[in-house]
Amino acid sequence: MQSDQPRPAVLVIEDEVFARIVIADFLADRHLEVLEAENADKALQILEQRQDVKVIFTDINMPGKLNGIELARIVRTRWPRVHVLVTTGAPQKERIPAGSHFVSKPYDQAQLADRIHLLAKAD
């Protein structure tokens, strides 16, 4: 039975193509609308165009002018209703912004999907 409710939109920001595809496909299979970006600049472009993004899931280490922590700070300031979930497998050197969440790599995909669903429903 199809629901009339729109699927919550989550933006996955990950520079490693294989990792991004795997988690994006997994989340899409769990009834989330998944948008993908390979870096913070692309993520910001998407956020400027889409008002339906409920959650961003970003890696900390990625190429470009901004890392995931800097992206999280911008999102928390410009889009305070968007929930931020940050991940890394490296030792965390910077503090994540207040109101953001952290999950360490490697993460359990099912637990991550559950957490994203909870964040997408929160306001």
Rank of each mutant, 00 (worst) to 15 (best):
M1A: 10
Q2N: 14
Q2P: 13
S3G: 11
S3E: 15
Q5V: 13
P6R: 13
A9I: 03
A9S: 13
V10N: 07
V12C: 06
I13A: 05
E14D: 02
D15I: 00
E16V: 02
V17S: 00
V17P: 00
V17G: 05
V17L: 07
V17K: 04
F18P: 01
F18D: 13
R20D: 00
R20T: 04
V22G: 03
I23A: 01
D25F: 01
D25S: 05
F26G: 00
L27F: 00
L27Y: 04
L27Q: 03
A28D: 05
A28Y: 06
D29N: 07
D29K: 04
D29Q: 06
R30W: 02
H31G: 14
E33L: 15
V34A: 01
V34Y: 03
L35P: 01
A37T: 02
E38H: 10
E38M: 09
N39K: 05
N39R: 07
N39M: 07
A40I: 10
A40F: 11
K42M: 12
L44A: 09
Q45T: 10
Q45A: 11
Q45K: 13
I46C: 05
I46E: 09
L47S: 08
E48N: 12
E48H: 15
R50A: 11
R50I: 08
Q51C: 10
V53E: 06
K54M: 12
V55P: 08
V55S: 07
I56T: 10
T58F: 01
D59H: 00
D59N: 02
D59Y: 06
I60M: 02
N61G: 02
N61T: 00
N61Y: 04
M62D: 02
P63S: 10
P63K: 02
P63A: 12
G64P: 09
G64W: 09
G64T: 10
N67M: 08
N67R: 05
G68M: 01
I69V: 15
I69H: 09
E70C: 00
E70K: 14
E70Y: 11
A72G: 10
A72N: 03
A72P: 09
A72Q: 11
R73K: 15
R73L: 09
I74Y: 03
V75I: 11
T77I: 12
T77R: 14
T77C: 12
W79M: 12
P80A: 12
V84N: 01
V84K: 05
V84A: 00
V86R: 01
T87R: 03
T87K: 00
T87G: 01
T88H: 00
T88M: 00
A90E: 15
K93G: 10
K93C: 08
E94V: 08
E94A: 14
E94C: 05
R95E: 15
I96H: 12
I96Y: 12
P97L: 14
P97W: 13
A98V: 11
S100Q: 12
S100L: 06
H101P: 04
V103S: 03
V103C: 02
S104E: 14
K105V: 06
K105I: 07
P106H: 06
Q109C: 05
Q111L: 09
Q111K: 15
Q111A: 15
Q111E: 11
Q111M: 09
L112W: 03
D114W: 04
I116K: 03
H117Q: 14
H117T: 09
L118V: 14
L118W: 08
L118Y: 11
A120K: 08
A120M: 04
K121Q: 15
A122Q: 13
